[in-house]
């Protein structure tokens, strides 16, 4: 995948470039907002990682201009301003995701992967399946190997988010945002506790575990390989 990194801090940009190249992406770095805009207009990257504060033209303006020009390239915003207002502003301007500095590279990677593989097409699935686990979004029921699993509301949403992203790592922060609508990190083990309850219901009674933990990164659900 061809990724444009627009980041004025050369060290951070280099760190990002190395990491993404290691993951098999081709990466171009620009340090100025105007360069970022012209690169996007003439080279059509598959994804843009855009810093909010850029010399020449700020990230928000770059994004708005891109969207006004009809470019639908997925944009991941990077910022040191982690306030809710900034987040909302970035998403309203047409950003697809938002990440606050400092971040774990694994967090960024998970979000890049999630953005890149969003399903095309308009239809909302009513049924999600992973191996022998089935989630019926119409009747709000979960079944594994034909057995109905009784899930609490939050556990159901948690499983839904994991299954919508089958095979991809979903970080703790992404889960907090998508399941609980939290834009902050609670001091307590909200994600871990709910995840362990979910696993006790979905994995423990069965032979093969489907939910996996990737150390220092997050969680994923996938069929046994």
């Amino acid at each position: 995948m061809k990724i444009l990194v627009a980041e004025d801090d050369t060290q951070s940009a280099e760190f990002l470039r190395k990491g993404l190249v290691q993951e098999g992406h081709s990466v171009e770095c620009v340090f100025d907002g105007r360069d970022a805009l012209s690169y996007c207009l003439y080279n059509a990257p598959d994804m843009v990682i855009l810093d909010r504060m850029l010399p020449g033209m700020d990230g928000l303006t770059v994004l708005k201009t891109l969207r006004a020009a009809g470019r639908k390239v997925p944009v991941l915003f990077l910022t040191s301003m982690g306030d809710v207002d900034d987040r909302v502003e970035g998403l309203l301007a047409g950003g697809d995701d938002y990440l606050v500095k400092p971040y774990h590279f694994s967090e960024l990677l998970a979000r890049v992967t999630s953005l890149a593989r969003r399903p095309a097409g308009n239809e909302q699935p009513t049924r999600l399946v992973v191996h022998d686990l089935e989630l019926d979004l119409l009747s709000h029921t979960a079944r594994r190997a034909g057995t109905v699993i009784d899930l609490q509301a939050k556990e159901f949403t948690l499983l839904e988010v994991l299954m919508r992203n089958t095979g991809r790592i979903i970080t703790k922060t992404m889960l907090l945002e998508q399941v609980w609508d939290f834009n902050f990190d609670p001091k307590t083990t909200v994600v871990e506790t709910h995840m362990s309850r979910l696993r006790a219901k979905v994995d423990k009674p069965f032979e093969v575990p489907l939910i996996h933990t990737t150390r220092n990164s997050g969680y994923s659900i996938h069929a046994p390989r």
């Binding site: 998403l91 697809d96 969003r118 308009n122 909302q124 119409l138 159901f156 949403t157």
Partner: peptide
């Protein structure tokens, strides 16, 4: 019934994206 239980902003984002 059957529609996502995801928080509203994310649902909107998902809808926007698929469109």
């Amino acid at each position: 019934p059957g529609e996502s239980t995801l928080p509203q902003p994310l649902r909107e984002a998902a809808t926007n994206f698929t469109a």
